[in-house]
Amino acid sequence: MTAISIIGAGPGGLTCARVLQRHGIPVTVYDADPGRDSRNQGGSLDLHDDNGQIALREAGLLDEFFALARAEGQEERGLAIDGRLVEHHVPAPGERTKPEIDRGQLRELLLDSLTPGTVRWGHALASTDGRHLRFTDGTAAEAELIIGADGAFSRVRAAVSPAVPRHTGVSFLEAWFDEVETRHADLSDLVGPGSAHAADGERGVFAQRNSGGHIRVYLMRQVPADWLDRAGLSIEDTSSVRAHVLKEFAAWSPRLRQMITDNDGPFVDRPIFALPVPHAWPRHPSITLLGDAAHLMPPLGVGVNLAMLDASDLALSIAGTATLSEAVQAYEATMRPRSTEIAKLLEGGAQQMLEPKP
């Protein structure tokens, strides 16, 4: 039996494992993916100097992060729907407040820092009672402490809390653009080295530079979670989805509408969910949660940062406390008020992303 088991090999779970191992504490991470390269890890994210970077310092990986991160990615552009630049933040020379890194690069950095064999791939959790882990392939394991780092629809959370994520009323439609300097030069110029955002009160776009000549665009719309079914559409039918969405953005300039007309490959539907605020659960001596499993919020730049800070705080509490039960209690006493305060500030934030720039 491993004393500590983490469910989920995302940034939070991997950060927790790394900090634990730096303190000589054995840990096993279980993840549903069949392998580390089995799927695309998503777009770019910014790691802030007051949370995510703190966690990476405790993980001993801050210098490696800065070697990979893109300081220029901190540039932000606010656009009107006619394409005019109305807001512009250019990072100062040497600014490291929140540099960008691809999610896949961050995950590789964390995975490579762990003892080989730490992560057990192909282990999708079916249920846990706080001691036993049962996986969907019929296998099982035991642990003295189970850490739920398994995201928005956490299976671990179900063992301690009845709360389920609710749709915020906003959904994203993700579009990818490759080789943008040559194949999508105008979009590359429009977005710049960081990100660009535009909205009209009912819908918006957020375009973000990734490494390797890629841009990801998120078309943000106030629609029900099942909008595709209601419209009689299939996400695989790119041309029909594109035609449907173009009607909604009819008043926008052609330069911005290229984010809908010119993408490479299919769209990805991403309904935005959040947990009730505040979210708490009765203290459990052998189960705790971190990141989205504990406090799922709208995607406004805090999710991964908070998950990694949770992970670092929890690992340090385990390393510095006499018993696992006391460590969990101390960690939750820090994590809960912090996450509740931020969640209250971001409540309704999904709709705020649709507000136009002044």
Score class of each variant (00 low, 15 high):
I6N: 12
I6F: 10
G10N: 08
G12Q: 11
C16Q: 11
V19R: 02
H23P: 10
Y30H: 12
Y30I: 11
D33C: 00
P34W: 06
D37Y: 11
S38M: 05
G42S: 01
G43S: 10
G43V: 04
L45A: 02
D46Y: 05
H48E: 07
D49K: 03
N51Q: 09
R57T: 14
R57L: 11
L61V: 07
D63K: 12
F65A: 06
F66P: 02
L68W: 06
A71P: 09
A71L: 13
E76A: 12
D82N: 14
L85K: 11
V86C: 10
V86E: 11
H88I: 04
H89F: 15
P91H: 02
K98F: 13
P99E: 07
E100D: 15
I101P: 01
E108H: 09
L111D: 05
V119Q: 08
R120K: 13
H123R: 15
A126N: 07
S127G: 02
G130D: 04
R131W: 06
T136L: 03
T136F: 02
E144P: 02
I146A: 06
I146L: 04
G148A: 11
G148L: 11
G148S: 07
F153K: 11
S154M: 13
A159D: 08
S161D: 07
P165L: 02
P165T: 03
P165R: 07
L173E: 05
E179N: 15
R183H: 13
A185H: 06
D186V: 10
S188C: 14
V191F: 02
S195I: 03
A198E: 02
G201E: 09
V205M: 15
V205Q: 10
F206G: 00
F206Q: 05
Q208V: 14
N210V: 03
S211M: 00
G213M: 06
G213I: 00
H214A: 06
H214D: 02
I215M: 04
V217Y: 00
P224E: 14
W227H: 12
L233M: 13
D237L: 12
S240V: 03
V241Y: 08
E248T: 10
F249R: 09
A250G: 01
W252I: 12
R257Q: 10
T261V: 08
G265I: 09
D269N: 15
R270L: 14
I272C: 06
F273Y: 15
P282N: 04
R283E: 09
S286L: 00
L289C: 06
L290R: 03
G291C: 06
A293G: 09
L300D: 04
G301S: 10
V302D: 01
A307D: 08
D313C: 05
L314M: 07
L316W: 01
S317L: 07
A319V: 05
G320S: 13
T323E: 09
L324D: 07
V328D: 06
Y331K: 01
A333C: 00
T334D: 13
R336D: 01
R336Q: 14
I342Y: 05
L345G: 10
L346N: 01
L346T: 01
G348K: 10
A350V: 03
Q352L: 15
L354H: 11
E355N: 05
E355T: 14
P356R: 11
K357N: 09
P358I: 03
